[in-house]
Design a protein around this nucleic acid. Structure first.
Lengths: 246, 246
DNA sequence: TGGTGAATGTCGCGG
DNA sequence: CCGCGACGTTCACCA
């Protein structure tokens, strides 16, 4: 389950990585320099770093800070291992879009392989989908007499979370954000409202933004556009409640 | 520089993590279960996984696939180590927003600490900023006679990447996207054009979207609003070229 | 410290 | 395989 070499000769490290890269997660701690080129380009100079490869093709180079790798290739990439001029060379190729990561490791302090599990049934609780689910199950959360017409209503300008009708028969466009509503979210809602308005001449179209909170500038945009805001709180993991304009 | 314990007793592993968590990157390979709660919530059952902590507060739990950790806390979080009922316990607390990650590790196969470097001068080549730079340096890339008036022109509705004037003296609003242009990007440009038009009555205001490519629906949307598209290709790392309507 | 928008975003879903 | 939008987005910049 665990295999490792400490301060191995480069040749041994290369053999080790070659043997385990397809079946397990491989860690390489050593002096690392690397280049990335593809949609963008980057380069890092020789320094101690941690290289991680996973059997799904992931390649990550981590430094002493940050959560994200400084250089990486995503799942689906292909990894090639070689030794050149006494250095361990990793080449990772992503097919589409075409992207290349080349890693040079002149010195290896530790190389290890391990088998890691997979959470097949993993689910985050409290995503936007959960909120939309709750509204669909109980449209009255939005307001009395609200009725859902369509969910994920596809338009030329994007997909509308919820399209419905109010008690008075006006069309209602609802955009849901699981956390905060930024100006961008308000613009998004405005875009949908404009589109629905243009496709339904003569009808009143309301726009309601549902979110945990809204920034001051976003609120100004919202008011300028004549849109509405409903705050929600996920009181507990299963349900949630809506309040009118905060 | 490298310290490690193989199949250590839990007490030893806990001491090891406590000693090195503040100064280096610590890896723990073992049986791991964990919970996350905060803006959302999640839980993973006992399984072999890789836990990584960094001195900046990062905590990551990695599995056999994916580039992103399945559970994590970002830089700035605080980490507490303890032993309870024979299990190694890690508690990570993020201040704002308040988020908790609790990791239970009943069995440790490997714990290692290492010092990793930091690329202080790190720079990705080919960002949106680089593209705007190139246009400013050579406005003719947009079209013959184009002149830049302002960069990052601040408006009520957002910041305009480039504001300029064409040969005929019309105002030109330019929005740059380093990769693809979605309906959102088109709407962003339209917002700016509308705003500039309202502030300059009687003047013609053109809008040009500069991007590597544009989706079909975004392109239709763009045409509906009478906006223009310029495709760019970063022919090499230093320069790039523009083509008219794709 | 919080708001704002870019990102090699990544990831998952649907056509 | 692409398009599209959410994400516990992360990240850097700036007020």
């Amino acid at each position: 389950m665990l295999g490792y070499l400490v301060n191995p000769p480069i040749e041994d490290a290369a053999r080790f990585v070659s043997r385990y890269k397809g079946s397990g997660v491989v860690l390489i701690y050593g002096q690392v320099e690397a280049t990335y080129s593809g949609r963008a380009a980057a380069q890092i100079r020789l320094m101690p770093r941690l290289v991680v490869t996973k059997p799904d093709g992931v390649l990550m180079i981590h430094e002493g800070r940050r959560e994200k790798p400084i250089i990486w290739n995503p799942p689906g990439s292909q990894l090639f291992v070689s030794v050149d001029d006494g250095e361990l060379i990793l080449r990772s190729i992503r097919r589409s879009p075409r992207e290349y990561v080349t890693v040079n490791i002149p010195e290896v302090y530790l190389v290890a392989s391990m088998e890691l599990g997979l959470s097949e049934d993993f689910k985050v609780i409290g995503s936007e989908r959960d909120i939309v689910d709750a509204i669909v199950a109980n449209p009255g959360l939005i307001e009395d007499g609200f009725r859902v017409i369509s969910r994920e209503y596809e338009t030329m300008v994007g997909s509308i979370d919820l399209l419905g009708e109010d008690k008075a028969g006006n069309l209602v466009v609802i955009e849901v954000k699981r956390s905060g509503a930024s100006p961008e979210a308000v613009h998004q809602l405005k875009r949908y409202v404009d589109y629905i308005t243009s496709k339904n001449p003569g009808r009143v179209v309301r726009g309601i933004l549902v979110a945990a909170w809204i920034s001051a500038s976003a609120y100004r945009y919202l008011k300028d556009y004549g849109l509405e805001f409903r705050r929600y709180t996920h009181a507990n993991l299963t349900g949630f409640s809506l309040r009118s304009n905060g």
